[in-house]
């Protein structure tokens, strides 16, 4: 349970660079009224960022060619179907984890 001054400083540096991007927009929009086109653009961010994060997990860019990460794709399909059917966050997470456990342990 120890650390060094140097390590604490590195962690504080990392904390600062993750904190500023998170709070800067909150400060800005209090003082500047965003133009309509920016607000329309921002309306697309949730679906874009969530789909980007999902797609990132479905591709494998380790090799020479970018390929599908088949294990994740196989778990993704039932997870997506359950999400569409139930529209429930908790059920989807549980089914996703169980599906992945089955794939990893029985294939």
């Amino acid at each position: 349970m120890t650390t060094t001054v140097a390590m604490v400083l590195i962690i504080l540096g990392c904390a600062l660079v993750t904190w500023l991007p998170r709070i800067f927009p909150f400060m800005l929009v209090r003082n500047v009224k965003l133009p309509n086109i920016v607000l329309r653009w921002l309306a697309y961010i949730p679906v874009c960022i969530l789909s980007a994060l999902v797609i990132e997990s479905l591709i494998n860019s380790e090799g020479k060619f970018v390929t599908l990460n088949w294990v994740n794709v196989c778990a993704f399909i039932p997870t997506l179907l359950v999400a569409i059917k139930t529209k429930s966050l908790s059920i989807t997470v549980v089914i996703g984890v169980v599906t992945m456990a089955i794939i990893r342990n029985f294939t």
Binding site: P46, V47, L50, S51, L53, V54, S57, N72, A75, F76, T79, L80, A83, I84, K87, S88, L89, T92, V93, I95, G96, V97, V98, T99, M100, A101, I102, I103, R104, N105
Partner: peptide, 23 residues
């Protein structure tokens, strides 16, 4: 944790949130 599939919880969550945003 990998054998239990727990690392996939995050992806499953993003999938569900994506669907919920499109409903």
């Amino acid at each position: 944790a990998q054998g239990l599939g727990l690392d996939f919880a995050l992806v499953a969550m993003f999938v569900a949130l994506l669907v919920l945003n499109l409903v």
